[in-house]
């Protein structure tokens, strides 16, 4: 009975040509992607790009008009309940039970999965330790700080020992200490073989955590790949940022010297593979602040989705 072992593992998600309309708005427009097991996979995009709607589809909480979707081998939307039994969700907005203590929140949530109190007792204590909330176990949720609530929400999403955890902006609004703790915990989960899917507006978070990611806008996928591949594909290796008043003549010169340059308010961004000549040229410009750095995911994001505000 060893023949089966050669089979490639089932991807956690297989989406083909997913589309969903709200009236005239195409919230999700012909989305296809496949997410291998055991990875951290990111969805990046401006507000309104369709990220949250996509996550809701993966949970069987939003219908779709066209396409097909399999999560952990189950077809959606038919097997939504079976999917949710094996997936954990960390929603964007906290929805902990304010009347319960920290520990009671975990026990009660287990009940919604049909799990018995005795069966999860050990797991509840382990999750409290994982989220560094053991000392707060008897505290009412109302009295917790934002960071503690977020950690409890993450612990709660693990109560059913999920194979896949979906996190919708898991660190938005948190201080750096909490953010680093959460990153460490997510890395720990991934090392244990739990698949992670997350959305975020923090490019540093995506670069740190995600094995692969997609950049979305207007319901469509603009590109997909590892963070390094996306950076390599879409922007030059170096960025020179100028702050101060850059005359039109200087801007034109810089544009001719570089691969790409753009103005944003009082700042100018110069993208290039060869930074040295430009930096030498700028040495005399002492009324300008010159910042030289490696290009990152944020540059890719802005290049692909533009700098216009989304409101």
């Amino acid at each position: 009975m060893t023949q089966g072992l050669a089979v490639t593992p089932v991807p956690v998600i297989e989406a083909q040509h997913l589309s969903k309309r709200f009236g005239d708005l195409r919230a999700v427009d012909d989305l296809s992607f496949s997410i291998p097991a055991g990875q951290c996979y990111g969805f990046l995009g401006p507000n309104g790009a369709g990220k949250t709607t996509t996550l809701k589809m993966l949970m069987g909480l939003a219908s779709f008009d066209e396409g097909s979707l399999r999560v952990l081998g189950h077809a959606l939307p038919q097997d939504a309940r079976a999917v949710r039994a094996r997936v954990g969700l960390v929603p964007q907005a906290d929805n902990l039970d304010p009347d319960f203590t920290v520990r009671e929140n975990l026990f009660m949530y287990a009940r919604f999965f049909g799990l018995k109190r005795r069966a999860v007792a050990d797991r509840v204590e382990a999750l409290l330790a994982f989220a560094e909330l053991t000392a707060k176990a008897e505290a009412k949720v109302e009295t917790l700080s934002g960071g503690m609530k977020r950690r409890l929400t993450i612990a709660r999403a693990l109560i059913n020992d999920p194979e896949l955890v979906i996190l919708d902006e898991p660190t938005t609004g948190l201080d750096p200490q909490v953010r680093h703790l959460i990153w460490a915990r997510l890395a720990e989960l991934r090392a244990r073989g739990v698949s992670l899917i997350l959305t975020t507006h923090y490019m540093e978070e995506a670069e740190r955590l995600c094995d692969r990611l997609v950049i979305m806008d207007h319901g469509r996928i603009l590109d997909e790949g590892t963070p390094a591949a996306l950076i390599h594909r879409h922007v030059e290796s170096d960025v020179i940022e100028l702050r101060g008043s850059v005359s039109e003549a200087l801007f034109t010169t810089l544009r001719s010297m570089s691969a790409h340059a753009e103005r944003q308010g009082t700042a100018v961004y110069i993208y290039t593979h060869a930074a040295t000549p430009i930096l030498e040229f700028l040495e005399d410009a002492d009324n300008l602040t010159v910042i030289h750095r490696r290009a990152g995911l944020e540059d890719v994001f802005l290049r692909l989705t533009g700098r216009g505000l989304r409101e």
């Binding site: 949970m59 909480l61 939504a80 309940r81 079976a82 949710r84 039994a85 969700l89 929603p91 907005a93 906290d94 929805n95 902990l96 039970d97 304010p98 949530y109 919604f112 999965f113 049909g114 999403a157 059913n160």
Partner: peptide, 14 residues
């Protein structure tokens, strides 16, 4: 306001 239903909907309950 309390979103208790949202929390339950992320479990097998519908």
């Amino acid at each position: 306001p309390q979103k208790t239903w949202d929390a339950m909907l992320a479990t097998p309950m519908d």
